[in-house]
């Protein structure tokens, strides 16, 4: 298994091995210099700082230095400090949190990694990514119930290269925005599995979903996509329909699905610039996904021609 580019330093062998394995499985080709400095501590003080952002199980507080962030896990006492500009996250885990480490990976530690990567100029976006059979990069952005994962699974089953179904990282490289992905199972709810007529998969009980590797669906995982087409999805009924939208409207959508842009004022302009460049580089569409797509996946490519 490849090692991760994000270093893990921890005196506890089990914790370090678990984090290293998780990061290696994600296959995030992170820029050098990022690190998690993890310590098990007997006690963690109550967190009373200013809350600047919330997501399920994870709170974001203004950092003690006023510029950075403190990330707290709400399920058990765990805290990560990322002072302004720092490329190392200092993580403190209580014994309870350490015992539930696996549960913390997809929320608490993923949040820490997202903020660390932002320090290196990689900007997180809730999006799925894919490359179609004629090598065009696609990005599907939206919230947790907008059909991204089901679409990613359908495209993988149709032979497309698929990156991620939810966590994409934008990086400005030369004149273009490229999107790094991570290697994680495409997580489907029961409805998505039924539409795809899929059995098997990896049970993800904490998320109420079943995961499928792109390779298991007949696709190929791709770590990098250069988007030419950006789709903002919603789930509809029978027919798949879509319309092209102006870049400014697309930027409004991207801001919604890249909420971190509002955090850490020192980084906000660069983050906004990356989102802006993506809207200019790609053709952007608002698409309502219908059931017809499962009989005719090419409907998506027809919509953008």
């Amino acid at each position: 298994m490849p090692t991760s580019a994000i270093a893990v330093r921890c005196a506890d062998h089990t914790v370090r091995a678990t984090l290293e394995r998780w990061l290696a499985e994600l296959r995030i080709a992170a820029p050098p210099g990022l690190a998690l400095d993890v310590a098990l501590v007997p006690e963690i003080e109550e967190q009373n700082g200013e809350r600047v952002f919330e997501q399920p199980e994870v709170g974001f507080l203004r950092g003690p230095d006023g510029r950075g962030l403190r990330i707290v896990w709400e399920e058990a006492a765990a805290v990560a400090d990322l002072p302004g500009g720092a490329q190392t996250a200092t993580v403190r885990l209580s014994a309870v949190a350490a015992a539930r480490l696996e549960q913390s990976l997809s929320n608490f530690f993923m949040a820490v990694v997202i903020i660390l990567l932002r320090r290196a100029g990689w900007y997180h976006l809730h999006a799925a990514t894919a490359i179609d059979p004629v090598s065009r990069g696609w990005l599907f952005a939206g919230n947790a119930h907008c059909g991204k994962s089901t679409t990613a699974a359908l495209l993988a089953a149709s032979g497309w290269q698929v990156g991620t179904d939810d966590a994409a990282f934008l990086e400005a490289r030369g004149a273009r925005i490229i999107v790094h992905t991570c290697h994680a199972p495409i997580a489907l709810r029961p409805g998505g599995r039924a539409l795809l007529a899929r059995a098997g998969g990896i049970e993800l009980p904490e998320r109420g979903k079943v995961g499928y590797w792109p390779e298991d669906l007949g696709g190929v995982w791709t770590p990098l996509v250069s988007p030419e087409i950006v789709i903002f999805t919603t789930v509809g009924d029978a027919q798949t329909t879509g319309e092209r939208i102006p870049a400014a409207a697309a930027l409004g959508e991207l801001v919604r699905w890249s909420a971190w842009v509002m955090l850490e004022p020192d980084l906000a302009q660069d983050h906004l610039n990356a989102l802006t460049r993506l809207t200019v580089q790609a053709r952007c569409y608002r698409v309502t996904l219908g059931r017809d797509l499962f009989a005719r996946p090419n409907r998506l490519t027809e919509l953008v021609t």
Binding site: A248, L251, G252, V255, M262, A268, L272, L275
Partner: peptide
Amino acid sequence: RLADVEGDGVVLHL
């Protein structure tokens, strides 16, 4: 924070 998108302006208030 301001962005210029093909002539339109976008403003974030952090």
